[in-house]
Computed example of a mutant assay.
Amino acid sequence: MQNMQNKLKKILLWAFIAYPLSWLIQKVLKVPIFETYHSFLQSFYQYFYQWWDWIVIVLLTYLISKNIVEVKYETMELVRRNRLLNELERWAETPYVPPIMVYYLMNPPQAVSGDIRKVIDNRFYQMVVSFFRDRVYINAQIQRKLPMDRPPLWKVIGPKDLLITLAALGVSLLWFSFVSLDSLEKWVYGWERFTIPGVIYFALYSSMKIQGYLEMRYKKMDQVIKQHFGQEEPEFFWREFFPDKEKGKTIIAAWEAEREKRQRYTNMLQGNVFVSEVIQNYSNPALAPYPFPSQEIPIWTDSMEQYYGEKLQEWTNEDKKITTHTRSKHSNVIDISKRRKQTF
């Protein structure tokens, strides 16, 4: 917006300077440049006077809608954050790390938008690592073997956000309904035509929001997890991600690579063209903290592994009891059809 205003000011300034300058050139060099320029300005004025309304409409439409794709990116960021929080809650009482968190820790998530400023300022990965740090060294009690059911996507999106999207969509549909039911001439020549920039914005806004929702649906997330780990909901114990384990070392390596890359982008954006091979000053406030609260393995690690084993054995025994009870229950049921066949 600011860049366009500056360009417009420069155009008007040069147009103003060109008028006396062209007159002077014509007087000195006897070249009819002033007459040509004057004729051009008259033609432009006539054209502008005839079409000023649609020029204003097109200009307004461009100005308010040129960055509309950012609505889609912001929506995807919102849903991604809410989805992560829901997945953490689903798996909280299990002995397993949420699969989506594992994927993000091993493949640091980037900003949805490709804007370099948003890439270096995005704090989603920082949030993922912070949640991991807060939980990884906690010897929590296990309450359930399987995670809770997923909430429907509309709950993850949030009723408020959905209502805003539906309202924007409703405004644009209502406008098109009025156009189709009313006189089209009024919408072309009447004052109603100045509502066009607004309705185009609402239509594009709702379109971007819906695209954002579809991009972040569960099906896509499950496909990515399955492609990476071989199944949609792999079960990884928290102990597997301690810094003395391979998965823990992978998390640290991914963190180091992401940290260095983001700081390099930060330095380049700040005008530091020369970037040394070794970065010593990490100044970006959006950088994620070290993935573990301490380098030392907790003293209760062995007892935690033993507790995991006992709990899993307990669940296995319960499953066997349920299976045996179900079979015995079915074995006491007399199959009437078979008895009848035997009788005859």
Rank of each mutant, 00 (worst) to 15 (best):
V102G: 00
V102K: 06
F124P: 02
M127A: 11
S113F: 10
R135Q: 13
Y96W: 12
S65I: 00
R83Y: 14
P98D: 00
I138F: 05
M101Y: 04
P98Y: 05
V128G: 06
K66I: 08
D115F: 05
V97Y: 02
I68V: 11
T94L: 08
Y104Q: 10
I64W: 03
K118L: 14
V119W: 04
V79G: 02
Y96F: 14
I138P: 00
P95C: 04
A92Q: 14
L84F: 14
K72E: 13
V79A: 04
K118M: 14
M101F: 02
P95L: 04
M76R: 14
L63S: 07
G114K: 13
T61P: 03
F131E: 15
E93L: 06
V129D: 11
Y96I: 01
E77G: 12
P98K: 02
N86G: 12
Y125C: 08
N122H: 13
L88M: 15
P109S: 09
F131I: 10
N107K: 12
R80G: 11
L84Y: 11
M106Y: 03
E77W: 00
Y125R: 00
N82H: 14
M101Q: 09
V97I: 15
I120M: 10
V71W: 00
R90A: 02
R123V: 10
L63I: 14
A92F: 12
